[in-house]
C-alpha cells in the first residue's frame, strides 16, 4: 500500500497557523510523525492559508529539512506547481487533475518534465460521475493523456471519487465496480487511490465505515490512499486486507513488523 500522509494540510489549525507565522516546527513535527508511521508520500496542502508559490515551496522545504519522504503536492494550479516541483528533492506526486481536457493539458506536461506522478480524479466537465461506466470512461481519458505525455502507467494514480454513504448509498457499488476495471487498462497497471474520508462524511460511525470500505476497495485493486497514517486501526485493516488478497507474505508478527521496520 502506498500511504499518503494527509496531515500537513492547512485545513488543520496548527498547520494553518504555522504557515501564517512561518513557524517550521508543526510542519516538521508532522513530517517526522508520519514518516515514522511509514508514510510513502507526505501530502502538503496550503489550503486557504495562502496562494503564494513561495509559501508552498517553504512548506515543502521545511518538510525536506526534517525527512526525505517524497512529497505529494496538493495543488493543481500550474504556476504554483511549476515552482513547487523545482524544490522537491525526489519526484513528487501531484494531487490532482481532473479528466477535463484543458486541465490535463496544463498539468501532464509539467508532471512529465519532472518525472513525477499525478493523481487523476475521474471528474469531467459535468462534475462527478454517477455511474461506474462514466468513471471508467474518464479514467481512460486520464490514462490516454498520461501515456501521450510519456508517463508510464504507474505514474498515474486514478481516484474514483468517493461519495458519502449517508446520502448517496447507491454510489458505493458503482465505485467498487469502476475500481475493479481500472487495473485492466495496462500491465503494469495504474495505481488506484482515493480520498477515503468522503465515504463517512456526515455519518456517525466514521472510522468504522472508513475501514470497512477501505478493505472492500483493496479487494478491487486499490493500492494507495490519502489518510491519517497514525490511525493504527485503519493501517492494521489495510495490512490485513493486503494479506488476504495475497499481496504480501503472512507472518504471525506482521502488525508489529510493519511498525518496527
Amino acid at each position: 500500500m502506498i500511504f499518503i500522509g494527509e496531515r500537513i494540510n492547512a485545513g488543520f489549525q496548527d498547520i494553518k497557523e504555522a504557515i501564517q507565522n512561518k513557524d517550521p516546527e508543526p510542519i516538521k513535527k508532522w513530517a517526522r510523525i508520519q514518516t515514522d508511521a511509514r508514510a510513502t508520500y507526505l501530502d502538503v496542502n496550503l489550503g486557504t492559508a495562502s496562494n503564494k508559490p513561495e509559501d508552498l515551496c517553504w512548506m515543502i522545504e521545511t518538510v525536506q529539512e526534517e525527512v526525505d519522504t517524497p512529497i505529494s503536492i496538493d495543488n493543481n494550479r500550474p504556476n504554483m506547481l511549476t515552482e513547487a516541483m523545482k524544490v522537491c528533492k525526489k519526484p513528487p506526486l501531484v494531487n490532482s487533475t481532473t479528466a477535463v481536457e484543458e486541465k490535463m493539458n496544463s498539468l501532464f506536461p509539467i508532471v512529465a518534465e519532472h518525472n513525477a506522478s499525478i493523481i487523476g480524479l475521474v471528474m469531467d466537465e459535468s462534475g462527478s460521475p454517477a455511474t461506474a461506466d462514466r468513471r471508467v470512461e474518464n479514467a481512460a481519458k486520464l490514462f490516454e493523456k498520461a501515456i501521450e505525455n510519456g508517463l508510464s502507467p504507474d505514474q498515474l494514480f486514478i481516484d474514483p471519487i468517493i461519495m458519502p454513504l449517508n446520502c448517496m448509498q447507491e454510489q458505493c457499488q458503482e465505485i467498487l465496480n469502476a475500481v475493479s476495471q481500472f487495473k485492466l487498462f495496462s500491465e503494469p497497471p495504474v495505481h488506484i487511490v482515493c480520498g477515503l474520508s468522503n465515504i463517512s462524511s456526515g455519518a456517525k460511525y466514521k472510522k468504522l465505515i472508513n475501514r470497512t470500505f477501505m478493505a472492500m476497495l483493496i479487494t478491487q485493486g486499490l493500492d494507495a490512499a490519502i489518510l491519517d497514517v497514525t490511525d493504527t486501526e485503519m493501517v492494521d485493516t489495510i495490512l490485513t486486507a493486503e494479506l488476504i488478497m495475497n499481496k504480501t507474505i503472512y507472518a504471525d508478527g506482521y502488525v508489529e513488523a510493519f511498525r518496527k521496520s
Partner: peptide, 12 residues
C-alpha cells in the same frame, strides 16, 4: 510464513 516470522523475531 515461518521464515518471515523468524526474521521478525531476529529483528525484534
Amino acid at each position: 510464513n515461518i521464515g518471515k516470522q523468524v526474521n521478525i523475531l531476529l529483528q525484534d
